[in-house]
Write a protein that binds this DNA or RNA. Sequence first.
DNA 1: TTGTTTATTTAACAGTGTTAATTAATTTTA
DNA 2: TAAAATTAATTAACACTGTTAAATAAACAA
Lengths: 222, 222
Amino acid sequence: MKDKKIHEQRMKGYFLQATKEILKAEGLKSLSVRNIAEKAGYSYTTMYSYFQDINDLIFLCVHDFYEECKLYVKDRTKKRGKNTTHLKSTIRAYADFFIQYPGIFDLFFIEKMEDFGNKKSIVDVINSSLDQICEEAWNDCIALNLISADHIEIMKSQVRSTVFGLLLLYLNRRIPSSYTAFVNQLNIQLDRIFDISTGTALSTENATVNNALISIKVGNNR
Amino acid sequence: MKDKKIHEQRMKGYFLQATKEILKAEGLKSLSVRNIAEKAGYSYTTMYSYFQDINDLIFLCVHDFYEECKLYVKDRTKKRGKNTTHLKSTIRAYADFFIQYPGIFDLFFIEKMEDFGNKKSIVDVINSSLDQICEEAWNDCIALNLISADHIEIMKSQVRSTVFGLLLLYLNRRIPSSYTAFVNQLNIQLDRIFDISTGTALSTENATVNNALISIKVGNNR
DNA sequence: TTGTTTATTTAACAGTGTTAATTAATTTTA
DNA sequence: TAAAATTAATTAACACTGTTAAATAAACAA
């Protein structure tokens, strides 16, 4: 009687694992029921015995990917201090995760999520993922008065649109054309967001580098 | 001999018009060859006599949409002065166009464009559309020394990621949950971008409104 | 070993884009 | 004008997608 439950979980795991592998390697567009089933070692339609439909399966991946992202960011920002530099590193690590797995960015922010209306909680996880994963770093900066507490929400909103805007353009339109230039733009823009409240001037050095990269971008569209 | 050319152009026009109408009304996901052909008044496969494939057809729409966007922005920013307020209005109008036609935003920035590799020029039109459409407004501000000439490219880059980031979150994830809140966030963030160089402080009023809207956003995800 | 339930697969449907073969319309030629 | 040639448009078909219903295989109970 309990064997059934174990078997069911095991089967679900096979399909989930296969789906996750395809999503990470090739992305949503090359994902199909036949595709998943083949990798899982079963026939298509077997999936329908364990999941309602392919969307059900896909959205079970979201939670795992979220946890993976959280872990990824944690590993990349271990021995840092409690300052805006650490906050910026955390944000950069978050962005890097999606650079590493563009298919997950697609799933999280590109794919229309109208078809699975009742899965609101999962959508909320995605929507607040950046804020959630960076929450500790934000709070550290607030506690130490490193950033103006008045504009926290505005700054968070600014970080959100900056990160997702840059990711969208880089992953979907190859703007800028290189990863180095992408990181540079992200760094500069984060600096400008956080330096408003501290009053620190922008380094001319950074600005120059960025200008050079931007001029490259226009002509060199791979 | 020339009749043939006229006929061909006319036929192309029928299919193009039908495609544009569907894209504007329902978006990419409900676009199909059968769909287009029905609206155009012909059978499917007739399309293949005038276009290489459906992508060929779709990407002919891009140019028209770009011109339409340019016109839209022009109409919405007529009797304004040559200052940052006008530049901000221009940027807002650009964003509004995609709010009006989410299907065009999909086509321009969401849809993967790998399948039609040789259409690089069209992709370039999309990529530079924001800069192109706002070029005059930027130049006016530069000429009148209203914004620091040193950071123009950085500021443009900031505007780009802000606009596309906000549009992505609002159109694809309903963040924030209302159009009013969206415009508010855009306004605040544009203010922060342009007020760095001018040294103008942020209005506390705006900040308060934004905070209120953000707190609404979290709970009210329709 | 039977009978019954459960697990898995095959067959089929409606949809997609696309190509080849067939019919309809038009134009050229005698 | 009538027949022939060319062009335009449609139907039929293929390979793919997600999904459901029916048929088979496996596991378990008596």
